[in-house]
Amino acid sequence: MRWFRDAGHLGRVALLLLLGVGLFVVARHFAVPRGFGQYGHYRGPVLKEIRAHPVSYAGREVCEGCHSDVAEKLAGGRHKTVGCESCHGAQAAHANSDDPGAHKPPLPNALALCARCHQQNHSKPKNFPQVDAMEHSGGEKCTSCHNPHQPKPGA
């Protein structure tokens, strides 16, 4: 006995609809990447992937862990704001090595390095110490008079 005339074909439509919904759920599962929407409209696990990028600059604190003598000297002078790796380059390979001596940082080229900050340039802040290298020392190496870790001569 039938409740009403169209029960048969309405049922088939309903079944098709449900099948469609089911297919959608399954297809969506495979189409949407894992973790999408975990934090927002993006793949959540990507944060972890970005964080996995290797570090090249070890950071001042790591340097100071071993080179406390230099750090102390530096802290007392005009160069106290200058990070170790500002002049010595990226040293994570040196710092994280079992044998740091094997990854010894090369000695920086003092004349070029000092000039990078201290060569006179009209766009630099007026109170920043800057010189015309040739006029100042006649091409003599900066390190003849200045110790980069405590740059005031005679300090």
Partner: peptide, 10 residues
């Protein structure tokens, strides 16, 4: 750590 640019900014 701080960023690489801040680390080296003299």
């Amino acid at each position: 750590l701080t960023t690489a640019c801040c680390e080296v900014c003299p």
